[in-house]
Amino acid sequence: MRHDTHAQHAHHEHHTQHRSVSWSMAAQATLHCLTGCAIGEVLGMVIGTALGWGNIPTMILAIVLAFFFGYSLTLRGVLKAGVDFRTAFRVALAADTLSIAVMELMDNGVIAVWPGAMDAHLGDAMFWWVLAIALVAAFLITTPVNKWMIGRGKGHAVVHQYHH
């Protein structure tokens, strides 16, 4: 009987711990994700523009690179913990897919609907300030998503077990 009470208490603590996720923890997870997304976005736009590609192929490249760099940052950290590549890759997919997807949807959505932003070039101030606004919007929308996921033991909560 004592074992059952202990198990119930541990189960309650586990759920309480997940429900009490701080905004700070969610913001840190989102900043981690934003770093990879921003690197991919900027690199994709630079490459697409340098190659003279149109808006759609450039945006697709930027999104692909955002996912690549977002996953890579998580993968690097998990591999440093001594985990095999296959497990680390699964952890990165579980931790970052929804976060990056929401971030990319917001980021590219802002750029797509902002008048003139799709036609701005790397040398135009508009390109950079709309990108900055888009990334801030993506951060603001994705942080509650990450808080929700971490609170349920998903997303970046999966990665935290490999940080210790």
Rank of each mutant, 00 (worst) to 15 (best):
C33G: 12
A81K: 00
A125H: 03
L135N: 14
R152D: 04
H121Y: 12
S24V: 14
C37Y: 07
E13V: 06
P115N: 03
V145P: 00
L131S: 06
R90L: 08
A29I: 01
W114G: 01
Y71H: 02
A88N: 01
H12N: 05
L73P: 02
F68G: 11
T142L: 13
T87Y: 04
R19A: 13
G109P: 03
T58G: 14
I47H: 11
A62Q: 07
S22I: 04
G153L: 11
M59R: 01
T143W: 00
Q17L: 14
H160S: 10
V159H: 05
A157M: 09
I63H: 04
G52C: 13
G116Y: 01
I111V: 06
S22M: 00
I60N: 05
A112I: 05
S99A: 15
G155L: 11
V42I: 15
E104S: 04
I141V: 14
W114N: 01
P115H: 11
L34F: 06
G54Y: 01
L73A: 07
W129Y: 15
L61D: 07
I133G: 14
L93D: 05
I63V: 15
F127D: 00
H12K: 06
A66C: 00
R86D: 04
T142S: 12
H32A: 08
I60V: 15
M45T: 00
Q28V: 08
H14R: 10
G153W: 02
G36F: 10
H6E: 12
V83W: 03
H6S: 06
W23G: 14
G123K: 05
F67I: 09
W148A: 05
A157S: 14
L31F: 13
M118S: 06
D4A: 11
T35Q: 10
Y71P: 02
W128K: 14
F68S: 11
C37E: 00
K147P: 05
M118R: 03
V83C: 01
L98W: 09
F127Y: 07
A95P: 13
K154Q: 15
T142V: 14
